[in-house]
């Protein structure tokens, strides 16, 4: 089971249902939409990927496999941008 955590050089701040991220090393800004923000909050709480998908299934009226695929895609992007790292 893979667990990620925010990269230590990332600062995050909430704006309504979105999250703005700033990587202090690259000085690049990112925004997460509401689904992305939900995933970010869960991984910030130390949840593993499977637990994040379970939580999303409870929060969103969507197919579990689609949510799992969306979560996987976002986690890959976040990891690629060094916004998260494996715990």
């Amino acid at each position: 089971m893979t667990t990620f955590r925010p990269h230590p050089s990332v600062v995050s701040t909430e704006v309504e249902d979105t999250i703005v991220l700033l990587h202090l090393d690259t000085k690049r800004y990112f925004t997460l939409n509401s689904t992305g923000a939900a995933i970010w909050k869960h991984l910030s709480q130390g949840k593993a990927e499977d637990d994040i998908v379970s939580a999303l299934t409870e929060e969103y009226d969507a197919d579990a496999s689609r949510l799992a695929a969306s979560a996987r895609r976002l986690l890959e992007q976040l990891e690629k941008a060094a916004l998260i790292e494996r715990a």
Partner: peptide, 12 residues
Amino acid sequence: RKVMAAMALCRF
């Protein structure tokens, strides 16, 4: 980190 987050809000 607080001031960096504030700048991120400005950017947003």
